[in-house]
Simulated assay, not measured.
Amino acid sequence: MKRARLPGPAAGRRIGLLGGSFNPAHGGHLHVAETALKRLRLDAVWWIVARGNPLKSEHGSFEARLTSARSVAGAPGMFVTDLEQQLGLTYTVDTLRALQEMEPEAHFVWLMGADSAANFHLWKDWEVIAGRIPIAIISRPGTRLTRALPFTRHFGDARIAERDAGTLPGLAPPAWVYLRAPGNALSSTALRGAR
């Protein structure tokens, strides 16, 4: 298996994984990461800058997106990584598999805003992802997490109560939690449109 430089120690640690295009990164991403760091009692959040997103037509320069993520993720406990670029991977399911093989003793949790969760069923092998790693979905303005979504329908029984969010990193998947938090309405799409 190809090795990669990881942004920090992982064995035995509780680490949130926030994947994204970050085109550009913004305060909404930081809001998701900081909410998860605190509420899940994580040791760190790794921002995984995607090589590309098969569901989006415009990615922007990888180096520019990496720089953007680094400029926003400056808070304690936040680390930006070019892991997918190092490993030549594009799909989250493959990135997770590689990370879990490299660091089998880490307690990884996948983090996403509710806006991403609404489209999660379009991701390659989304059901496999949910079966590999606990997931935390953080509220985002203008997006409701409903029972009608394919993810919530399929994995409804795996949801844990918000008050138990701190237990999520130690749970066997499938397991997920929805975290409500005061919102940050920034979006990459709006920021690109304002340029």
Rank of each mutant, 00 (worst) to 15 (best):
H31F: 09
T95G: 01
V93Y: 01
T189F: 08
G166T: 07
L96H: 00
L89R: 05
A106M: 02
E162G: 01
G12S: 11
P76R: 08
L89M: 12
E58D: 13
P54I: 11
V109N: 00
P174T: 10
F120G: 03
S61P: 07
D82K: 01
K38D: 14
R41E: 11
L149C: 02
A69W: 01
L186D: 14
G113V: 10
S57H: 12
A190M: 07
A181R: 13
L111D: 01
W110R: 00
L186Q: 13
E101H: 14
A11D: 15
T67Q: 13
P7C: 05
P174K: 08
F155K: 12
L83E: 03
G60P: 09
H154I: 04
G183A: 08
L66Q: 09
T92Q: 01
I133D: 00
A190H: 11
R195V: 09
P76A: 13
P76D: 11
A130C: 14
G60Y: 09
M112E: 03
W126P: 05
M78F: 10
L168Y: 00
G28P: 04
S139G: 15
E162T: 05
I129C: 09
S187A: 13
A148E: 15
A64K: 14
Y91L: 14
L171Y: 01
T152G: 06
R147C: 09
L55W: 00
G77H: 02
H107I: 00
S139C: 10
D94V: 09
A172Y: 04
A44H: 06
A114D: 08
H154E: 14
P7V: 04
A106I: 02
G8W: 02
R159N: 02
K124A: 11
W47C: 04
W47Y: 13
D115A: 13
I129L: 12
N184K: 11
S139Y: 07
T90R: 14
T81C: 09
K38L: 12
E101C: 13
A64H: 11
S21E: 05
K56W: 06
Y91M: 10
Y178E: 08
T90W: 14
L186S: 14
F155W: 14
T67S: 12
P54K: 11
